[in-house]
Design a protein around this nucleic acid. Sequence first.
DNA 1: AAACAAATTTAAGTATACTTAAAATAAAAA
DNA 2: TTTTTATTTTAAGTATACTTAAATTTGTTT
Lengths: 221, 221
Amino acid sequence: MESIASENFIKTLYHFHHVQGKDTKPGSIARELGITSSAATDMARKLSLKKLIQYEKYKALKLTPSGEKMALNILRKHRLWETFLHQVLGLSMHEIHREAELLEHQTSDFLAEKISLYLGNPEKDPHGDPIPNAKGWVNNDDGSIPLAMAHVNHHYFISRLSGSDKEFFDFCHSSHLIIGSLIRVNKHYTINQMIEIEVNNTRLILNKVFAQMIHVKREKE
Amino acid sequence: MESIASENFIKTLYHFHHVQGKDTKPGSIARELGITSSAATDMARKLSLKKLIQYEKYKALKLTPSGEKMALNILRKHRLWETFLHQVLGLSMHEIHREAELLEHQTSDFLAEKISLYLGNPEKDPHGDPIPNAKGWVNNDDGSIPLAMAHVNHHYFISRLSGSDKEFFDFCHSSHLIIGSLIRVNKHYTINQMIEIEVNNTRLILNKVFAQMIHVKREKE
DNA sequence: AAACAAATTTAAGTATACTTAAAATAAAAA
DNA sequence: TTTTTATTTTAAGTATACTTAAATTTGTTT
Ligand SMILES: [Mn+2]
Ligand SMILES: [Mn+2]
Ligand SMILES: [Mn+2]
Ligand SMILES: [Mn+2]
């Protein structure tokens, strides 16, 4: 069994690699986890001895197959908890991540199965992120793109809301931007990188930060 | 925020003092938690600096008021989780303690309230143990006694089953010994400390270990 | 290509939570 | 009461997960 610190490190590395496609060195993980670079380097060397990551000085970190398996196991628990807390206990979108971030480390595979079963083996969490299955398989590429990349005059539906703070979700909720909402892209403002969309017959102007957090998918399929 | 090790220590001390009425020195806690006496002495001194326990060399340990408050906060989370895991997710009696023992340390007061609310603010957990309320109040003395202490020819109902292993609960279940079951005490065997009871028109002979784990209450009230 | 800036690594040190082994003390037995 | 036994404490040491500060390496700019 790995420590909470190790699990968070591995999960963050997975996230940077698979979701953001970043070239991840210890410094990025350190920034994300709120620790110093030296602590992250230390941890990288330790996890490398356990064959969970590949580590070469000054090079980007990479998960080994067993490290990736571990990351997916934790991610599964994280997303199952988020789904459960939201659907069953009624926690809000901005509350679930915070709680799941802790619970994910104290959840046996046995308990994870019980939660999954109770929820009917869901495939997406409340943010629209895919839940890895018990064998550690997940499809990360569902064809959605950040709203910031969407084309003018095309229609999309919202597939993911990848934020964790209250303000973002308050804004989304009050603007009818929820998963499944249909939108149309009106215009990109190149100078300040804002984007104008139409949702529910209302025009809305979003800044780039939010337009990166909202992911959309073409209407087809 | 206290560490998992501190929380388990405090909770164990509370348990020994309030439930078993023991004169608790570091050694007992060490035995319970599977650590060495020296580790427990260390921890006792550290918690004493934080004013969570009273510690004097070679004397029994005692929780301070703030230590007791902390113990009750963790105990509340433990028992809420047990109730939730049993009632909602359908985990068996022998599975809930194991999982709750971990989850209790990663549960915010906020989440505990949500769980409590969802369950209808229960007052007892599946073992029949009282759940401290959000303010940290609990009634530990519900008038129940270990079956081993019960009087011959009296009728009782089962109020608590304080075990955590599968064999005990399998036995209880197959013998119709569940919380609320009505029983009658037939005889005490002084020589081997067995006890004979009648439940569901069946005579049953229990050894002392089980008779200590099963708590009963007089029919009245 | 050299100089500068930024990031990473190493070195040294801290707090927590343990361990084993020895010393001190308390409790029980003779 | 003395001796023996059991328990508790102290001492010394380990692993984890961090810290700050200095050294090294890399990336960028001139
Ligand atoms: Mn986490
Ligand atoms: Mn999520
Ligand atoms: Mn615990
Ligand atoms: Mn219980």
